[in-house]
Amino acid sequence: MSRSTFVYVTYIHTTQQKLWSALTEDTEFMKQYWFGFHCESAWTAGSPWKMVSGDGVVTDEGEILEADPPRRLVIRWRHQNKPELQVEGESRCTMELEPSGSAVKLSITHTMEREPSKLIAAVSGGWPMILSNLKSLIETGSTILDDPHLKGDRH
């Protein structure tokens, strides 16, 4: 069986509980590091999940497959906005939060049961930016990266 996978890892100086909140129910915080995007869900196994862009477009939809706060979250994830990505069907995104000294190890694994996958190629560029931004925001209180979609000066 061929599949496309990436595993991205970052270590963030925070607690599991704060990081869980930043990745799930704290949508205002999420918008700050996710370039205006946020996710909506009840964050329990079986509940629907969707990702919404800053201008209100649902770009991705799915379901929470596993939720073990504040340790593990598995999302069934299907892109909805771009036809060439939507046609690939469902992917699976796993987020694992493990204590590591004074930090939390956050591992994101995103898998699609096909090779190659345009969706995995597309999201693999976005995740490092989102994770870096999340790390900066939690550790220093501000993000480093401006929204790549807003090319104007923010001042």
């Binding site: 996978t5 595993v7 490092p128 870096s132 790390k135 480093i144």
Partner: peptide
Amino acid sequence: HFLNPVPLQEIYER
């Protein structure tokens, strides 16, 4: 083994 580009992204941002 997987390439983890997150630390490289941090250099880029820096």
